[in-house]
Every structure is written in C-alpha cells, then in structure tokens.
Design a protein around this nucleic acid. Sequence first.
DNA 1: CGATCATGTGCACTGAGTGCCACACGTTGC
DNA 2: GCAACGTGTGGCACTCAGTGCACATGATCG
Lengths: 243, 243
Amino acid sequence: MSEEPRGGDTADTTTAKPPMRDALVAAAFQLFLERGYEQTTVDDIVTLAGVGRRSFFRYFPSKEDVVFPDHERCLTDMKAFLGAGTGEEEPVRRVCDAARLVLRMYAENPTFSVQRYRLTKKVPGLRAYELSVVWRYERALAEYLRGRFAGRPDGTLQADVIAAAVVAAHNNALRSWLRSDGQSDPDTAVDHALGYVQTSFGSSPGAGDASAAEQEDVVVVISRRGAPMWRVVREIESALGPE
Amino acid sequence: MSEEPRGGDTADTTTAKPPMRDALVAAAFQLFLERGYEQTTVDDIVTLAGVGRRSFFRYFPSKEDVVFPDHERCLTDMKAFLGAGTGEEEPVRRVCDAARLVLRMYAENPTFSVQRYRLTKKVPGLRAYELSVVWRYERALAEYLRGRFAGRPDGTLQADVIAAAVVAAHNNALRSWLRSDGQSDPDTAVDHALGYVQTSFGSSPGAGDASAAEQEDVVVVISRRGAPMWRVVREIESALGPE
DNA sequence: CGATCATGTGCACTGAGTGCCACACGTTGC
DNA sequence: GCAACGTGTGGCACTCAGTGCACATGATCG
C-alpha cells in the first residue's frame, strides 16, 4: 500500500507525527487483505512491520482501531467545525455540512476506503466496531442540535431524530459510492441524500446549492380544527425556510 | 442461543426456557451490580451459579450477551410482525408499531431494564454491544421499508432514513423513561416521539389512536413550482388520513 | 556530567472464547 | 437385564487480545 504519501518529516502540526503508525497500518491491511482479519494476529502484524508487539498497542488501543486509523482526527475536526459556528446558521444545514467532512475523509483515499469497506462488510466484529465509531459522530451532531434547539419543545427529541436521519442519509450515499469501487461521484450522491433529510425536516435544502435546489420542496400543510396554533405556526415557520 | 424450533410445539416462544440460562442471568446481574461489569469474570458468574464455565458459553456466545438475554427473541418477533402484514398498511406507521414491540419488552421488566440501563450507561463495552443490537432492529425496519418502497425513486434512501429516525425517536423516549427509573409512562412518551417522526415524513400519526389523535394534526404543505407531482399527491394522501 | 522525558521493547500475567473429550443422564430397542 | 444411542454438561488445554511493569535507548536541558 502507500507507504508514506506525505513527503516531509517537517510537516504541519496536525498529521505528520508517526512513521511507525503508518507502517503498522500498512502491514495490517496487507495481511488482512491476503488472509483475512480474524486469521491475522497482532503478532503477525508486528513481525511483518518489524516492531515489538507492545508498540502496537501503544498506537492502537485495540486490534480493531488499526482499521479506522483516522476517525479520531475526523471526529475532532467535526466537533471543531460545529463549535466554530456563529450560532446563526440554519441548524439542519449545519449538521449536514458537518457530515460532509466524513465523506471528505473517505474520498481522500478511495482505494483504502473501498478495501476497508469490503473488510467491514465481511467481518462482524469490525461492523460492530464501526457502529461505535458512527455513533460518536451521531452524538456530536445530536449534541450540537440539542444546543441549538434548547428551549424548543421536544428539542432533544428533534435533535436526536435529525442527527440519526443525517447519519443514515450520509451512510446510504457513502455506501453506494463504496459499492461502486469509488467510481461514482460521492459528492452529488451525498448532496442528494442530505437534501432529502433537509426537506423532510422542513428546511429548504437549496440556498446556494444548485444541484439540490431543484429537486423537491413539497410539504403538505393540513391543520385539523382544534390543533394548537403555536404548532401550526412552528410548522409553517420551519417549512418556509432557514429560520 | 435460541434453540426454539420454528413453530410453537407448546406455548409460544416466550415461556419455554432453560432454568440454567435464567440462573446464569441472575447470578451475572447480581455480581455486575455489586462489583461492576468489568470487575466480574465469567468464572465468578459460573461459580456463583454453581455450573461449569463451559456451560456459560453454551448459552451466551459472549459475556456481553448475558446482559441482553431477550433481544434475540424480540428481534425475531419484530421480523415476524413485519412479515405478517398484508402489504396494504401505511409503511411508516407499520415500522412505528414494530418499534413499539421493543418498548413492550423493556416495559415487561421495568426494574431489570433500569438496572441494565445503568450498566450500559457506565460501561463502554456494553454501550458498543448495545449499538450492534439496536443496529439489527434498525436493519429489520429498513429492510421492510425497502420492500415497501421498491420502485419508488430514492426508495432505499427513504427506507434507511426513516428507519433510523424511528429508532432514534423510540430510543429517545425509551431512555427518558429509563432515566425516570420506570416511573413515567413509557407508552405516551413513545407515541409522542414516533408521532413526530410520522409527521416529519408525511403521514398522519393519529388514525385510530385516540391519545395521539388529539395531540397534533398539523402538516404544512408547500409545493414549490417544479416539484414532482407524484410526491405532492403522496404527501397529501398520507397526510389526510389512515393509510 | 547527570537528570529528565519520550519512545520503543521484552516479559509475565489476566481473562475471554474455543475445541476436544469424557462423563452423566434419559430413552429406545433387543 | 444390557447395549446403543442422543443430549446436556463439566473439565481441561489452548489461542489470542490486552495490560502492567520494568528496562533500554536516545535526545534535550540544567
């Protein structure tokens, strides 16, 4: 695999630390692909990488972590992105943009992402671990939305549901891209999927995004006699657009 | 795991239970509660239960499984419920009803559910395992919706998103009930949460359920010029009434 | 020079999970 | 009665993931 795409040892502060870490990832994936994940022991990895067994667990807290080497950084980036807002953005749109950060990470190394996808699809243990990774993204989005929806009735409920919907839509598009071996265009697929979520939860998906703007904006408003007026107003408000 | 032969020979699937399995669950929870999950070894459990170590793994494929002894049966029930429909039901409403089966299982043993909730909240390993359990429910709902949405454009996308939203809403209500030590009313909370999902995805939540019928029947319909007509029709149809 | 710190290694240990075999039963058949 | 069975159970012995601890190196700093 790619032994060390980043050239200089004197690189930026974020990512240029460990040569050994990358060597372990490369050795691990080589063995995983040629003989399977469960058939590969940590000892096999470290002997191929030429390092001590103890060093493996210094870089990766578990054997599964070597399969997702960059998710920790991506989660940090997502939290930073969500925390860097002015607090005036449309919340649903904001979490959709945050989800796109994950797609960007996958799209940076298509071949690596596809290989990992095939692994996680086959190995139940890796699928379970991936779930816990995805769950942390979802929690980050939900926590952000909870903050933005504070005071709103059912704020935490809406935050949890929308976060789950955003993650599901993102993963749906991401998986279809991975299934195409990275041949299709991931960005338009994710835009389309997230557009569906935005329309479902009553915010116009467009506003600067031409591809999604023309697709669908249908919300049916029927108010039964006796329905609380504050709810009618809220639905209309949220249906009409970005706050 | 479940050695239940398909098709009830005696009573239905709930009551044909090995005594040893229950003894193991009881012993395990006693130790988990008094000294913690990670501080309890499988040897501790089997010695307290008075059985051999090997028998533990005969009934539970892993140590985590003893914490969720009845989810396998519940998942089977959910799949059976989804498969038993006539194919004419309103799909979103159907998966909401399926999700209520999970709530029912939790509500059957409130004290047990609350104890387990406290455990999973504290132990990261159990949280991860719970995620894989919840994921299987979500996949069951999504697969059902994919079948119902077959042929529809973006059918799988809508299926995945709605399934995720239903699970998130259900879990939101379930957790608030668990946090109240089982004192609040779980059914109304779940009805309310699922009602939010149903309105978000364009189907009236009421229709036969009196408690939910009077609470909210407000759907705002705004159709942008150029929106596909089939979607407008579908939204109006589903918003207007019982399937 | 010694002191400190960071990074990598070796070793022994715990504990989960598995494979294999033996034993205790209950039943059926002769 | 005994023999042949299938089933549930217990008892090792083993692999492997993960941890704690001590030790070795090298660099920097006083």
